[in-house]
Nucleic acid binder design. Structure first.
Length: 512
RNA sequence: GCGGGUGUAGCUCAGGGGUAGAGCGAUACCUUGCCAAGGUAUAGGUCGAGGGUUCGAAUCCCUUCACCCGCUCCA
């Protein structure tokens, strides 16, 4: 509203959160009870935005999947599995054993470390020094010197902290500490929520809320093969809630404890994994660009070796599609990971379940193998956040001071019908038009208040088009189209509104 | 989990032991009719929650919750 410059990125996040609440995109969960850390509710506009993204993903994956490298459309089917599965599934997947990271705290420095990241160097019987496993020899020398110990590191015994009994922690000086014995005993941080199936609360009926939707797909691999006519290579897609008991939920809906994933497991022969990984990496990048993440805030990146997950150690690794969120800038945050999971999951489930999960080549019955998996796994919740951040556009030259530059395909409201006056025949014509257009598109009808306030409101929720009925409408059956981004207007015939929206829906930004 | 900050009307914020405030917004009506215009009126708050001190607490003290920033962490 004033002539101020656009807010700095860090401030932008504050404004975005406020806008999301004010206009009904995202509310803090159970807010009237003081909220609950790590949980968020989607409001009337947020759910439309999220559903749009969800439906577009499903369309790109399942309904109209892309054309593969060989020129034929690829084959992907969908499922919707239960959030709670037999707990053995999570033992097999590695989540019960591995989805927890024992942590040690330093009482002196208040730093916290992953126990399995620390190495202990035994300088003598009672002077042990802990280091991060990646500490350079220079770092180690400097630390030894500072503590007055001889610098002879190659001669010292090196032991992972995980192998040091807690009773001997009193000998250890922490990585950033000056005094001995400040490391606490390791604490378990299991990231899986658990519950109990049935009324009795004991270990026998302990169950877990899924920390990823992927496992539900692997558990149904055989069912899908047996009930459909898919042949390798093919994909199984799923969208749904997942739960992680994050130590520190942060950054609005970026890392919450309950979130939504869009995952597709692509089953192929191990020899073809590289080809498909590249294919999906490229397809998934195009997808995000096609729905509006076009700026250089979107980037693609191959994982470093040390980031590889437990299932990808032997494979081609993971490539990330990342977005530069205001709170990560100038860094990027993960939006989607395209992982080569090898045959890890199916092999694990075959071993644990004792069920044959091999694929038999239909052209050659002697060929049996466990397919490899390429997994494009995207965060639906994070996608929504990226769309909002990308759309957020401060503009001091308009009454709202800001507008959301959504691509029309994701905009929660595609258009608003606005009678210029709340009296006379404008509202009647507007209502008629609204009833007609709403059969095709999600739109608003707004009658109250002066036209400027109504345009401002639509700007703030990112509605691409406003159709306004004025006195000329009753004379010659035309309405004005007001474009969100430019605030410019055209006049079109009343009967061509739907056609106009159809032709402009996929391309229109109003910038031209 | 640690350190710092914040919490008063839908939003932005002022107040700082003695009847709860402003601007914007919302609602109704009037006026106007293409970019948050003007007028009149109305509604809306147990000052984040709980406890304590006090004749009296939004204000002082303690506890707690949530959010933000920084650490830490994140398949």
């Amino acid at each position: 509203m004033t002539g101020n410059a656009p807010p700095a990125p860090a401030d932008a996040m504050k404004d975005i959160v406020a806008l999301c609440k004010r206009r009904g995109f995202v509310f803090p969960a159970s807010e009237i009870y003081g909220g609950i850390n790590g949980f968020w509710d989607f409001g009337p506009l947020g759910v439309e935005l999220k559903n749009n993204l969800r439906d577009l993903w499903w369309k790109h994956m399942v309904t109209t999947p892309p054309v593969g490298p060989d020129g034929a459309p690829v084959q992907i089917v969908g499922i919707d599995s239960a959030i709670i599965q037999n707990p053995k599934a999570w033992v097999a997947s590695g989540h019960v054993g591995g989805f927890s990271d024992p942590m040690v705290d330093c009482r002196e420095t208040k730093f916290r470390y992953r126990q399995d990241h620390l190495i202990v160097l035994k300088a003598d019987a009672h002077n042990w020094i802990a280091f991060h496993q990646e500490a350079s020899t220079d770092d180690i020398d400097r630390k030894l010197k500072k503590l007055g110990l001889p610098v002879r590191k190659t001669e010292y015994e090196r032991v992972p902290l995980t192998q040091v009994p807690v009773s001997e922690y009193s000998n250890i000086t922490g990585p950033d500490a000056k005094t001995k014995g400040t490391l606490t005993e390791p604490k378990q941080f299991n990231l899986m929520f658990d519950s109990h199936a049935g009324p009795i609360k004991d270990d026998a009926n302990k169950v877990y809320l899924r920390p990823e939707t992927a496992q539900g797909i692997f558990l149904n691999f055989k069912n899908v093969l047996d009930s459909t006519r898919v042949r390798v290579p093919f994909g199984i897609a799923q969208i749904g809630k997942a739960f992680r008991n994050e130590v520190t939920p942060r950054n609005f809906i970026f890392r919450s404890r309950e979130f939504e994933q869009m995952e597709m497991e692509w089953f192929c022969h191990g020899d073809d994994a590289k080809k498909w990984r590249d294919f999906w990496f490229s397809e998934r990048t195009k997808f995000w660009q096609s729905i509006g993440l076009k700026s250089d805030n979107l980037r693609v990146r191959d994982h470093d070796k040390d980031e590889l997950s437990h299932y990808a150690k032997e494979g081609l690794g993971t490539a990330d599609i990342e977005y530069r969120f205001p709170f990560t800038a100038p860094d990027f945050g993960e939006l989607e990971g395209i992982a080569h999971r090898c045959d890890f999951d199916l092999t694990q489930h075959q071993e644990h379940s004792k069920q044959k999960l091999e694929y038999m080549d239909p052209d050659d019955n002697t060929k049996r193998y466990i397919p490899h998996v390429i997994e494009p796994a995207a965060g639906l919740t994070r996608g929504v956040l990226a769309l909002i951040c990308e759309a957020y556009t401060p503009d001091p030259n308009r009454p709202s001071g800001v507008f959301l530059d959504f691509h029309p395909s994701v905009a929660p409201k595609k258009a608003a019908i606005l009678p210029l006056m709340s009296k006379g025949e404008h509202p009647e014509i507007a209502t008629k038009l609204y009833m007609k257009v709403r059969e095709h598109y999600n739109i608003d009808l707004d009658v109250k208040q002066n036209i400027g306030k109504r345009y401002a409101r639509q700007d703030e929720i990112g509605t691409p088009f406003c159709f306004t009925i004025d006195d000329q409408t009753s004379a010659d059956h035309t309405v004005t189209v007001r474009h969100r981004n430019t605030m410019k207007q055209d006049r079109i015939h009343l009967d061509s509104v739907i056609e106009y929206m159809r032709t402009n829906m996929n391309t229109a930004t109003g910038r031209s």
